[in-house]
Amino acid sequence: MDKLIIAGRTFRSRLMVGTGKFSSNAAMAAALHASDCEIVTVALRRVDIDNPQDDMLSHIDPKRHLLLPNTSGARDAEEAVRLARLARAAGCEPWIKLEVTPDPYYLLPDPIETLKAAIILVKEGFVVLPYINADPVLAKHLQEAGCATVMPLGAPIGTNRGIRTRDNIAIIIEQAIVPVVVDAGLGAPSHAAEAMEMGADAVLVNTALAVAADPAAMAAAFAKGVQAGREAFLAGLGKQRLHAHASSPLTGFLRNEA
């Protein structure tokens, strides 16, 4: 069977799902179930000590899902490392989606701080999955630093704009020695299918599910998109060409050939 392997661990699903922005924990749980995903991202924040909220972890089945905490909110390497250590102390396995996004408008990842943090976290025994711009050279540096995947963005987080970084993602995939997970910006199942057709190993989706009128139905649709794209990639897509190429023989027409 076609399995995804990250840091020696085998996964059946190539769709990772984020848990932000859902209207309720019930809607989130329904989407996780419908997506059939195995890797689920979460974030860490200060508890509001005056008003503790319903605990979202009680809605995620630890037998079905590997929790992948992110370092969202970190503006530099030091903050990201601090969050990763806290996530581990909170009881997570030492898997971390490394995000360093100093710019609040586009939430684009800082490549220098991301690499710095990755080097530290790999040394501390973390399985590091860095969120990056679609920069093939940075992807190589992160692989050499021992990261378990690279996670290039299709478009800025939460924009639903699809794969705007297609040519660079193609280079990253071509050169990758670790799984490539296209993360951020995927707004429709066709975007996820496109990433998988290109040869991405997995995709991560959050906003597109959370803001859908029916998150669970959208999660099921994304699962199909990922599956279709993966199967098409494995089947081998035909080459694109500029001119028409007839599907039937160009002989035997109902006319006399000159």
Partner: peptide, 24 residues
């Protein structure tokens, strides 16, 4: 966590308590 019950706090300690929330 294993040290929660033996870590005695002092006046003016700065404490941070975090938990998991939704995130992508």
């Amino acid at each position: 966590r294993s040290d929660f019950d033996t870590t005695v706090l002092q006046n003016n300690d700065q404490i941070e308590i975090v938990n998991f929330v939704g995130g992508g």
